[in-house]
Amino acid sequence: MFVVQNRRCQWVLLLTAWLVFPVLADLPPLTHGLTPIAEPADSPTLRLTSMDDEIVDLASLRGQVVVVNFWATWCPPCRREMPSLEHLYQQVGDKGVTVLAVNVGEDEDTVFPFLGTVEPSPTFPILFDTDSSVLTQWRVRGLPTTFVVGPNGKLAYQAVGGREFNHPDLIDQLLQLLEK
């Protein structure tokens, strides 16, 4: 116990180091490909409370292309791709493409300060899957994982790992889905 208490101060300093650590590491570039889902099926349900204390139901977004992103603040690639999701939302949000970012296992007290560090700060809905049950239902195996739901409510694309969501090729894929 004595050792633990003495180390506490050291840990506080190292918390900062941890935030720096993934940035310094030689991380791979974010890619921008979406994988078409071979046999598109209806998306699993998604009905969660947002940061604004509103219930957001994926079913009510039928007719739009919905980018569903599962993430957490402690996940380095999730943090890296978050600004590109906002850029995407700003570019095509008024064309029928929306973004839902589902945070896994954290609460507003943790997520809100993080969002303040993202530039540009997200304006799309941030939803809370506090017990990870939605994550399980969507068969996510690693964070981040992103699904694209077509206007017909079926899963159209999937991306495992960080992406550059505002890359022109990726935006084209989403807009083409809107035209189908």
């Binding site: 890619t31 490909g33 402690w74 690639p77 296992g105 690693g142 495992v160 790992g161």
Partner: peptide
């Protein structure tokens, strides 16, 4: 706690995964 358990589980490298060509990846 539930939040600690979830953070631990999902910060680990996936026990099983499938990566499509062209850039699927995980870090854990």
């Amino acid at each position: 706690s539930q939040s600690a358990r979830i953070a631990f589980r999902w910060a680990q490298f996936p026990p099983e995964q499938e990566y499509q060509p062209g850039g699927d990846w995980n870090q854990g």
